[in-house]
Design a protein around this nucleic acid. Structure first.
Lengths: 326, 326
DNA sequence: TTGTACGCGTTATCAA
DNA sequence: TTGATAACGCGTACAA
C-alpha cells in the first residue's frame, strides 16, 4: 500500500503539500493542487484512515447502542434505527459501530469510551434512571438519545408518545366506547412510561378518571398477558388499549382463541403500530421510526461539527383509525 | 489522557518496558511487570486503541455486511445475526462495524476495505453470482459467509437448506397428502435456490416429479402471492409449501380470508420457521440462526488468528410437525 | 532484563 | 506557496 510520502516523492513535492491538496486545508497553489489530485486519482492512493484518526484524534465512527431485546415486535424498531442511521452515516463518510447492552450494564460503553473508537454515540433506548446518560456526560462524549431523558441538557429525539397516547385515548373516550382497559409493562423504559402517562392525562382532560382495576402496567410475560385478558373479559371491559404491538398481537390472538370478535364483541387499540398489526382491525398510532433515528443521527453530526442543536426534538405521529373504533 | 510515556516516566522505566508489561510479549522481569501492572490499574491508564491499530496494522473491528431488507419476516434473521456476532465479538475484545448494502452495490465494501477499518468481514447473505466474494478474495480480506457460496475456498457456514427442504418435502410426500405446490421467489439468493433444489430433489428420490404447473419461483410481491394462491386454489392443490415465513404468513392470511381452514381444507408448510408462525398449524423447518451467525464469527476469529478452519460448515435443523401434516 | 531508536501514516506548526 | 520537522501513541528490532 502506498503512502502519502510515496505520492510526494513520485510527484517531487513534500508530503505536507500532498496532505494539503487532499484535505483542502491550508494554502496551496491551484496548479499543484490539481496536479496532485489528478495523480492520486490515477495512482490509486488512498489515505490510511487509522493514521488519520491518530493524527486528528477522531475516528469517523459513531456508535449505536442497542438494548438486548427479545420480543419479535421490538425488532423492527431497532432494525429500522440501524438502517436509517447507517444510511446517513455512510453518506457522511462515517461508519457505525453497533454495541449491544442491557439497560443496566455500562461496561460495554465504558470499554468503547476507553478505546476511543467512536466520536459520538446514539442511545436507541432510554430508561427511567438511565445509567448511560450520566456516564456519557461525565466522559464528555457527544451523544444523542432516541427517547426521552428527564434532563434538560441532553440532546434527545423522541416520538410524542405522551401526546399521541393522550389523543388516542381521547378519541376512544369521545366515542363513548365504554370501559377502557390499559395493558402495559416495562415502566422503567421512558417510552412505556410516557404512553401510560398520556393515557392518564386524557382522562384528566376529559374530567374523568381511569378505573384502577383495569389498568395493568406489569405484564412482563405472555402468561401475565393471558391472565390479564381473561380477567378483563370477566370484568366485561369494552376496549383493550395495548401499550405496544407485542402486547397487542398477543391480545388479538387470545381474543380470537376465546371466540371474541373485533370489533363486534370488543374493541382493541394499540399505542404502537407495526406491520405485524397491518391486517388487524386495530386502531393504532403510527410513528416514523426511520425519521426518528435519522434525525438523531443528523443531530449527532451537527453536534460533532460544533453546531448548535435543539435539545429536544419531538416528532409527529399519525392515528390510524380502523374498524375497531370507527 | 495519559500515555504510555507518562506511565513510564512516573515509574522511572522506559516506555517499551511498560508496553511489554501490558502485552506480555518480550521478556520482562516478574517484579517490574507486576509493579507496572499494579500502577496502571491504579493510575487509570488505558492504551490508545487507535495508536495500537496503527502500530500493529489491525483494528480489532470486524464488519458485518447486511443486505438492504424490507420484509418484516427477514428482520429477525439479520437481527439475530447481529446480536449473536456482537456478543462473541465483545467477548473477544472486538467491535463490530455494520454496513448495509444491496446485493449489487459493492461501493460500501470497497470504501471499508480502502479505509482498512476492519480486520475481517462476515457476509450475512450470499447470491448466485455474488459480487462481494470475488472483491474480498481479490483484496485478500479474511471473511466468512453465512450462506452457501459455490466456491471451494470460501469459508462458509450454512444451514442445510437443501437437505432440510428435501426431508420436509419427503415427509409431505410420505403422508400422501396429494398435490404439493411450491411458493418461492428471489432465486438469485442462495438460500432460496437451495430450498427449491431440495424440494425438487425429494421428488427425484421418491421417483416422481413435481408438477411444473403448481411451482412458483418468482413471487416478488404480495399481489403475486395472492394471484398464485388463488390459482392454486382453483387448481385444487392439497398443500402449499412456502419458501419462507414471509410468504407463509401471507398465504395463511389469504387462506383465512377465503374461508379455507388449515389443516382441514388445505395443508400449509414452510421452509423457514420464525416466531411469527408460532401459533399457526403450519409444519416448518427450524434453523438456529444464533448458532449459525455465532459459528461464522468464531470461524472468522480463527481465520484472523491464522488457524486452519473448515471451509464448509453445515448446521443441523429441526422439523416442527404441526397439525397441518400430522 | 531493560532501554534506545525508529517505524506506523497522517496532520499541524513553523520557517523559508 | 511550499517544505522540513515535530507530534499523535504505541510496538518492536536491536543494542546494551
Amino acid at each position: 500500500m502506498k503512502t502519502i510520502h510515496d505520492v510526494a516523492k513520485e510527484l517531487g513535492v513534500s508530503a505536507s503539500t500532498v496532505s494539503r491538496a487532499i484535505s483542502g486545508k491550508g494554502r496551496i497553489g491551484q496548479a499543484t493542487r490539481e496536479r496532485i489530485l489528478r495523480y492520486i486519482e490515477a495512482s490509486g492512493y488512498y489515505p490510511n484512515a487509522v493514521a488519520q484518526s491518530l493524527a486528528q484524534a477522531r475516528t469517523n465512527n459513531i456508535a449505536v447502542i442497542l438494548p438486548k431485546v427479545h420480543t419479535l415486535t421490538d425488532i423492527p424498531f431497532f432494525h429500522t434505527c440501524i438502517y436509517a442511521i447507517e444510511e446517513i452515516a455512510q453518506a457522511n463518510d462515517y461508519d457505525i459501530l453497533v454495541v449491544v447492552t442491557n439497560g443496566r450494564d455500562t461496561r460495554p460503553l465504558e470499554r468503547l469510551i476507553l478505546n476511543r473508537k467512536a466520536d459520538g454515540m446514539i442511545l436507541t433506548s432510554t430508561y427511567e434512571n438511565d445509567c448511560f446518560v450520566p456516564l456519557l456526560k461525565e466522559k464528555k462524549i457527544p451523544f444523542v438519545t432516541i427517547g426521552a431523558v428527564p434532563d434538560g441538557d441532553v440532546v434527545q429525539v423522541d416520538n410524542d408518545n405522551a401526546g399521541a397516547c393522550m389523543e388516542l385515548t381521547g378519541v376512544l373516550l369521545a366515542k363513548k366506547i365504554g370501559r377502557i382497559a390499559y395493558l402495559g409493562n416495562g415502566m422503567e423504559q421512558m417510552v412505556n412510561k410516557s404512553r401510560f402517562q398520556g393515557f392518564c392525562a386524557a382522562y384528566l382532560q376529559y374530567g374523568g378518571e381511569p378505573d384502577g382495576d383495569i389498568l395493568y402496567t406489569d405484564l412482563d410475560s405472555k402468561v401475565m398477558i393471558e391472565k390479564a385478558v381473561d380477567r378483563l373479559l370477566q370484568e366485561g371491559v369494552d376496549c383493550m388499549l395495548c401499550q405496544d404491538d407485542f402486547i397487542c398481537n398477543e391480545v388479538v390472538r387470545l381474543l380470537a382463541d376465546r371466540g371474541m370478535r373485533i370489533p363486534e364483541d370488543i374493541k382493541v387499540a394499540s399505542c404502537h403500530y407495526s406491520r405485524i398489526l397491518e391486517n388487524y382491525p386495530v386502531t393504532s398510532l403510527k410513528f416514523d421510526t426511520g425519521t426518528l433515528a435519522g434525525t438523531a443521527c443528523r443531530l449527532l453530526f451537527d453536534l460533532l461539527d460544533g453546531k448548535e442543536v435543539p435539545v429536544k426534538t419531538v416528532l409527529d405521529y399519525e392515528i390510524s383509525l380502523k374498524e375497531s373504533t370507527k
